[in-house]
Nucleic acid binder design. Structure first.
Lengths: 230, 230, 230, 230
DNA sequence: CATGAATGAGGGTTCATTCAT
DNA sequence: CATGAATGAACCCTCATTCAT
């Protein structure tokens, strides 16, 4: 039994297996995201997922302990990948206002290239300010700095987070509708900066600075989205 | 025979019956609101409702044709009652900025006295800008007027609606946490006015004007909430 | 209390009450028959009946102890009225063959004037030869006599009853379809007589003898049917 | 790796699975038939079926999309199996009269060996002459031919179908009662032939010709019936 | 060990019957 | 006392999870 097995090096075998595992995991997460984008995260059902990902029921439970775990996982995964893609762009900017403006614009504009990702984000709904949230954490530091420096009006951090959340969520929601103005993300960022206390002209200037689109090639999850859309 | 007697009794009987009917309807709506506030509107199940309202399965269907109908009904009912209570206050104000500020403050501050109502509102999530929405409609006219008059920055109506939605939703969400500043509603309204384009000092002045609390006594649904909380 | 009551003679009062009672009973039976004709007797629901008869739920149970009782009652009532109407016509006939032919023709042709009655009969389905059945009993004696006299082939009574049942049920069923030949009842009776053993020419001659239509005016239940059809 | 081994096992595995599937399907159909035989097809409820077949609720829906589908399926399945079993016997006969006589006898006599099947058939009730019916279709051609050839009296096809339906249904019904004459099926077929216009002596002769019993071994559904009865 | 058959709790709806008013 | 509100048993259907093969 198992005649040829010992010939192959064990580390190679396990590496291949781990790769396959990761690929399948992403297939499941991607399918879940697509379904969540359409019907909302709570409506993600195992039947839809295993049908969409062409996986057997039993296999699914090898990757996720429960449907709820999958739902949580896909949410954090989406947030993580968004951050990972936005970070390098924002990294080179010092001004917290511009950093936030860029963040808002970059994430909102996902709706233009990756509607599924944006729809999923919108379906997630209002982030819970009280619980730790990876996307909010991303903005938190800039808001604190901006307020401390007096660049933003003095206000509770929660309110500042609300402003940013609303700007991103609202813009993403609207941009999913093709009839919406193409620069809606910029206008939303501009309004957020005003809400944070920047003068109108400065808010406009910052929000209209040229900004490259995100490089999605690093994201396995979002690349999957693009493939589906083609 | 039976000439005069039945006239009053019948009238009385049907009146009493109608009253009881309405009371039961409100009990069901109130229970549904409470459950929706906790688990989200989509998770409202008939079992939970009839258990909470202490009504039999069969009775439920005498009041609502389906669970879906109940869910829709409770959402519109909550929105309607909010409007009905806010309207008389806002009615005496001409300035669209102040009208909106009052609206945002009044609705957000519901979280302080009627946490269940506010939680339900928050669970409803981001309103769909594209579909007609009774609460958004309430703000729409003021935003249009404010933009046309140049009191607000020129911007797409959708963006203005986003700003107001975000201010209300975010503030209500935060105010549900007892540790949140008591004037959070005012600060949120102020930030919204800034986002709409008002100068910072004017935004602050308008949003801190004295404002009476809503009169909730007219709302059977919300009064029910208070009773439940006691 | 009850000032004027004693003036009226009790027997008059009770007679009027009994009449009203009977009228309502017939309304309920008629409605049940109509519903049973459409959906089958088992599908007669109390809601449909009280809606159709414009009676309150509570009242219904004053007239029938249960829905099942109503269903049984309407079946026997229909059978009884059919017999009552057919009997006077058949009474003057001596030949068992002709008596049966007349019976088959009369009952089948109900479908032409009272489709609801016929549809109900058809929905009742095949009569149970083993249980006492009022309609079968009507035929039973003639079949026994006919067999004993040698006018019919010697055969088990059950078989003879089957022949008659089938002729009536089948003809009624077909005659409900307007495209069916108008003399289908006669042809069905003729075939039944052949099955019972009569020579073909005699079967035809007997089954084509002129036959008056039933007088339905005596039947409260069927008159109701006619009114509905108009 | 895994070169030759999996080929057979997979094949074998899926074959075994398909067999088990088919067995379960038959168990469900058989149970449904049994319940339908007792209470009538419309009264087949999922609870009774899964209890009777000792299957879980969820499993049931893996085999049938709905209870209605099961009810339809069991009716067509029963009809199909009857035809399939009767066909080879009738195939060798040319005379339409004898073909019909055999068909009537064979199907009726099911009541003697497979009372459940017969009871189900009886509960199905009078076949609808207007809708296509697999059992009626079986007789239709012979009747048309017989009438055209002048072997049967000239009559509407519907009437001829009624005669056959009545003969089968009535005989099956009666044969379910153990006290009924054992040759009731033959007598019923004989009467049907007379009704169709054959002379009495010929009807008798044809209907008493020796006839083998059906071979039920090919029918999984009916064999199941027998097992249940043991 | 990947599979998918089986499970059963849970959710939605209907309807005969009772009973306070 | 006629009424119709209230009841709850009985139905149908879905879906997350387990487990034998």
């Amino acid at each position: 039994m198992k005649k040829s097995a010992p010939i192959l090096p064990l580390d190679h075998r396990s590496r291949v297996a781990a790769e396959r595992r990761e690929k399948m995991r992403l297939r499941l997460l991607g399918t879940a995201m697509r379904i969540g984008a359409e019907k909302g995260p709570v409506a993600i059902s195992i039947d839809d997922v295993i049908l969409g990902a062409e996986v057997s029921r039993g296999s699914f439970y090898k990757y996720f302990p429960s449907v709820d775990a999958l739902i949580r996982e896909v949410a954090t995964q989406v947030a993580n990948e968004l951050i990972q893609m936005a970070e390098p762009v924002v990294l080179g900017i010092n001004d917290p206002a511009e950093r936030l403006s860029c963040g808002i614009r970059l994430v909102s504009r996902i709706a233009l290239t990756q509607p599924v990702v944006a729809a999923f984000l919108v379906q997630l709904g209002w982030p819970n300010v009280h619980k730790p949230d990876i996307l909010l954490d991303f903005a938190r530091r800039d808001l604190l700095v901006g307020i401390k420096l007096g660049r933003f009006t003095h206000m509770p951090l929660k309110l500042a987070l609300n402003i940013v959340s609303g700007a991103v969520l609202g813009a993403a929601h609207c941009l999913l509708d093709p009839s919406t103005e193409r620069n809606f993300a910029e206008l939303s960022a501009e309004a957020a900066l005003r809400a944070l206390g920047l003068p109108a002209n400065e808010a406009k200037e910052i929000s209209t600075r040229p900004l490259l689109d995100l490089d999605l090639s690093t994201s396995a999850l979002f690349r999957g989205d693009m493939l589906q859309i083609q």
